[in-house]
Structures are given as C-alpha cells and as structure tokens.
C-alpha cells in the first residue's frame, strides 16, 4: 500500500488535485479558443491560398510555409517576449494568438489538400445545371470536403492540445507546468510525469471519442 500512499501524496493531498484541475482547465481553455479561432483563420487562409488574387495567394503561401516550418515554441517566445512585450496584454491571450496562428496554417493546408482530392467536374456539372457559385459550394463541395478533411482535422486537434504544453515558458501555469511543479516538490518525477501523460492521453481519447460520436450519428441519419 506504500505505492498508493505515494500516489495520494503526489496527486491528491492538500488540494493537489484541485491545482491539477486548474492547470487542466487552463490547457483546455487555450486549446479550445485556439482551435476555434485557428479553424476560422485557416479557412480564410485556404480561401486566399486557392483563390485567384495573386498577391494574397503568395502572401498566404509564404505565411503557411513559415509557420509550418518552425517550432511553435519559437513563435510563442518571439511574440510574448518580443512583439507584445511592451503592450502588457495577458500571457493567456498571447498564447491563444500564437496557437491560432499555428493551427490556422495547418488547417489551411489540410483544407487545401481535401479540396484537391475533390473532383472538379462535379462543381462544373452543378454550375451547368444552374446552381449558383455559392449553392454549388454549399451543396456539392462542402459535404465532401468535411468528410475528407475530418480524420486529419481530428489529429490536428490532438496535436494542438499537446503543443500547448510549452506555455510554461510564458508564465502560464498549465497542466504541464503544474505536473512539473509537483514533480519538483515531491521529488518523484517518474510517477508524476507518467500521471500527467495519462491525463493528456485521456484528453486525446476524449477528442477521438467526440469525433467518433459525430461519425456514428451521421451514419444513423444516413
């Protein structure tokens, strides 16, 4: 029972679990907000990237390649300690901006690859049948786009949650930071970090579960 006592000391005693929950909440907040903003931003980027207006197209292309080709921690440090250093905006906001920028680039690329997988002829056929541009997009392109992009999007979501584990560098106390603090205080890094990993794993599986649920519902309705 010594091991259980140890677990109790590490994860539960003196409100330790509350601190862990607080850290988890911060991680969830950052992830959820960044996902929302990042997806919207990514859709916009993708729109520019496949559009016909040359300067914006090139700009989007450059942006995507820079962001996708560099570690998110560098971007975070650069924004927090460089660009926004004197403005005094909260670290949480900077983190959300950073991860939105990062997720945006990834979402833009995954949407573009899904678009490329679609058959162009279908839209052309719809257009000749008298559908407007918007109708053709809404009724023909979008449903197929969602279906193709979904599995990749799912892993982007899970990746995003894991990327947020670096926010300790910008004075945010997220789940990883809490776990590290506990490991230092209790002098039991192996067990503590394994515990932290299990929590992250649980979140990832929760995300997969939610995606699975929507899949099943669609099958039922179809």
């Amino acid at each position: 029972m010594e091991f259980l006592e140890l677990l109790n000391k590490i994860f539960l005693k003196d409100g330790g679990w509350l601190t862990i929950l607080n850290g988890l909440w911060v991680t969830v907040q950052i992830s959820a907000l960044s996902l929302l903003l990042g997806t919207l931003f990514g859709a916009l980027l993708c729109f520019l990237r496949v559009g016909n207006f040359k300067p914006l197209k090139v700009a989007a292309q450059i942006y995507i390649s820079i962001i996708r080709g560099s570690p998110v921690l560098m971007l975070l440090m650069l924004l927090f300690y460089g660009v926004f250093a004197r403005t005094g905006i909260s670290p949480l906001l900077v983190a959300v901006i950073t991860f939105s920028m990062h997720t945006g680039a990834h979402v833009a690329e995954l949407l573009r690859s899904a678009l490329m997988a679609l058959d162009k002829g279908q839209v052309e056929a719809a257009r000749t049948l008298g559908f407007s541009k918007f109708q053709a997009f809404k009724l023909v392109t979008l449903p197929q786009l969602v279906k193709i992009a979904k599995p990749v999007y799912q892993s982007t979501v899970v990746n995003l949650i894991q990327w947020t584990s670096v926010v300790g560098y910008v004075t945010i106390t997220d789940l990883t930071r809490v776990i590290n603090n506990i490991a230092s205080r209790t002098m039991q890094p192996m067990i503590t970090i394994t515990g932290g990993m299990i929590i992250y794993l649980a979140i990832s599986y929760l995300v997969y579960g939610i995606f699975n649920l929507t899949e099943r519902r669609r099958k039922v309705s179809a």
């Binding site: 003196d14 509350l18 601190t19 106390t173 603090n181 230092s184 205080r185």
Partner: peptide, 14 residues
Amino acid sequence: TGDLPPLDYVNADG
C-alpha cells in the same frame, strides 16, 4: 521557477 525545493517550490494548492 518552482524547481529548487526547499528554496523555491510550488505548494500543493498551487
């Protein structure tokens, strides 16, 4: 940093 007990650490209550 919370990294160097007993000089610098973070309590269970955060």
